[in-house]
Structure formats: structure tokens, C-alpha cells
Design a protein around this nucleic acid. Structure first.
Lengths: 104, 104
DNA sequence: GCCATATATAGCACTTAGTGCTATATAGTG
DNA sequence: CACTATATAGCACTAAGTGCTATATATGGC
């Protein structure tokens, strides 16, 4: 049914199907299983975003350029006027965990 | 004046200031120098986005989860109904160049 | 001291990406 | 056949993202 992505995921997935057959998992869970398997991306507080940038020792302008966003946007993130979501949040977490080299 | 980010950037930057002193560079160029130094992120065509995902051998749903975006958004990208910009575009380029491991 | 610049905060107004929803279609599996 | 995964399509809403200007401060060169 599924093309092999990784042996681990396949094993976990087939286990899940077994659990579903046994009535332990409901349909929704099975349907969104792969998605739910991924660790949730927590929102970032304005201060945290500023910390992430300052840990990289770059200005707001350079940080914005590296993330391919606008200076205005980075500023609003750090002030809390706008909250990064989706891909922006994902990118910030990457920098937080792996440093600027992860995106440069 | 500036805290050391990297020896290379510092060297280039001081060179730029020299050029500016000589009147070769104008103010705007100097002001946005760091930003303009970075390679521009080209927009991605719908077909390209689909290729990037399929090269990773994941479904739209899983791809969306990995990028921390919605299934609906990935679908619209691939159909051309919406064009990814900013951080979304940056993230897609990362996957294109380094594979899913760059974001997983 | 003065002047220019880099940096950061603040506020305004606009556009559209992103989201969520439902419906439809197809291919694959028990 | 019944169920599911996958993908396309369309509708409507919200808020992120963008761009702009103004202000403030710190720093460096003259």
C-alpha cells in the first residue's frame, strides 16, 4: 500500500493498523497517524524569538534576510505584535535547535 | 563597530566601507549591504513544488506536517492557486537543496 | 562637538497567504 | 463491495506578512 519511506515508520504504521484492527484506534487517529506522529511545533514568545536571533549575533535586518522575510516582520515578532505560525514557526525552531547554519 | 560574526563578512564589509569612502558605493547600497549579499530566493512554480515533495516520497499531508503548514496550503501550492513566499519559500528551497532531513 | 549610520521600536493601512471546510474523483486494500 | 488514502476543486474568513514613515539611541568618523 505504501511506498517505503523508512523501515521504522513502516513498522510503527503496521503496528498501528494492527491496533486499529483490534479496535483500539479509531478512524480519525489512523487517518492522521503520520501527521500526529510528528512532534508538535510549539509557538514562540516574542522574547524567545529575540533570544534566538541574538544567539546568532545578527541584526534584525540580516536575520530577516536569512529567513527570507521582511525586517518589518521580524520586528513585529520580537515585539509581539504578530505571532509567527506555520512555516515561519518551523524555520525559527530550526534556527533555535541547529543554529543559523541550518538555514544559511 | 560591529561584533564579529565571521571573518569573511567583516573583511567584505570593511572593503565595502572603503569603496564607500571612495565614492563608488552610494548610501542605500551600504545600508542594505548585508541583506543584498545573500543569494536571492527564487519563486517556485507549482510543478517544482510537487517535484520537491515527490522527490521526498511523502504525501501532501505528511509534507504539510513536516513543514508545519496545512494540507490545504500544500495543495494550493501545487495547483498554483497560492504562491509560497517568505519563510515558506525559504523552507521549500531548503528541502529542495538538502532534502527532508534538513527540516525533519 | 557634530554629522552620518546602524539598529530598534512604534503605528498605520493594505494585500494576500494561509487556514478550514465541504464536495468530488480515483486508486488501492480488506 | 465497503473503506481508506490521496489528490483536486471551490468557497469564505482571518490574520500574517508587507511596506511605509517617524522616532530614539548608540556608535564611529570627521
Amino acid at each position: 500500500m505504501r511506498k517505503t519511506k523508512s523501515a521504522i515508520l513502516d513498522a510503527v504504521h503496521s503496528t498501528a493498523k494492527g491496533l486499529h484492527r483490534a479496535g483500539v484506534m479509531d478512524q480519525v487517529t489512523l487517518r492522521e497517524f503520520d501527521r500526529l506522529c510528528l512532534p508538535p511545533i510549539a509557538p514562540l514568545e516574542p522574547a524567545q524569538i529575540k533570544q534566538i536571533r541574538e544567539a546568532s549575533r545578527v541584526s534584525q535586518a540580516v536575520f530577516a534576510a536569512l529567513l527570507n522575510t521582511s525586517l518589518s516582520t521580524v520586528q513585529k515578532w520580537e515585539i509581539g505584535q504578530k505571532r509567527p505560525t506555520g512555516t515561519a514557526l518551523k524555520l525559527l525552531h530550526l534556527v533555535q535547535e541547529r543554529g543559523l547554519k541550518a538555514v544559511a
